[in-house]
């Protein structure tokens, strides 16, 4: 028991590590605030492209989405962070993470928005067009608001996954929460910082998990 406390819940160590962890926490928040909106915007763009008439565009979008769904995000990140500098494209750690996340998460968000748009009946388009709205206006004011509402649980679920995924940025030495915790661990030779990071993730994300499991039970019970 004492061993457990001194190894995992060591307050002295925590005090030393706290400034690192706090800085890492803020970096994680900053990262989230950049990658989530980027991914949502990218996903919306992907979904809108699939509604276009052009067959070629549709095919390209499907290839894009499947390609990045098949690619483990960490592999993508390493490729961008370590491979691209050889072409003199150096985005820096933050930039590499942002680009990797944009490519990966936009395909997931894209699939969600597409399902939402497909759930809107034809009558909605026809009603909107019959009142003189343009195609773009119909999308913007009639279809997308309803589509988004229909897929809110999926959007939240994906966002939770994206926030958790920011932890892989530690691999390319972006000083976010997990990276800070591992640094602190290697300096102090004690696991407390990692446990503390875990607890921080838990405290921040647990409410979202609860909310989601409510949604999921309700959703599947409706079928």
């Amino acid at each position: 028991m004492d061993l457990l406390i001194s190894s995992f819940f060591n307050l002295d160590i925590l005090e030393q590590a706290w400034p690192f962890l706090l800085a890492g926490f803020w970096m994680t928040i900053k990262l989230t605030l950049v990658v989530v909106p980027l991914g949502v915007a990218g996903g919306l763009a992907v979904a809108l492209l699939t509604t276009m008439r052009s067959r070629i565009v549709k095919w390209l979008v499907v290839i894009y989405v499947d390609f990045f769904r098949a690619f483990p995000p960490l592999v993508l990140l390493m490729f961008i962070a370590f491979g691209l500098p050889f072409l003199k494209i150096d985005l820096g750690a933050f930039g590499a993470v942002a680009v990797a996340f944009l490519l990966n998460t936009s395909s997931y968000y894209g699939e969600i928005f597409r399902a939402g748009i497909e759930s809107i009946p034809r009558g909605q388009y026809e009603a909107a067009r019959s009142t003189g709205l343009s195609a773009v206006q119909t999308m913007a004011y009639v279809v997308i608001p309803q589509a988004t509402k229909n897929v809110i649980p999926d959007l939240i679920s994906n966002t939770l996954e994206v926030v958790k995924l920011t932890s892989i940025a530690s691999v390319v030495a972006l000083p976010e929460l997990l990276f800070a915790a591992r640094q602190a661990q290697s300096v102090t030779y004690n696991a407390t910082p990692i446990i503390a990071a875990g607890i921080i993730y838990l405290v921040c994300l647990w409410p979202l998990v609860r909310l989601l499991s409510r949604f999921e039970h309700r959703q599947i019970a409706l079928h």
Binding site: F8, T166, S167, S170, A191, G198, V209
Partner: peptide, 19 residues
């Protein structure tokens, strides 16, 4: 569900051996 998988892996591999 709330913890990032990478955090769990690192806990198992780097933290558990200390106990």
């Amino acid at each position: 569900r709330a913890l990032p998988p990478l955090v769990i892996i690192i806990m198992f591999y780097f933290a558990l051996p200390t106990v």
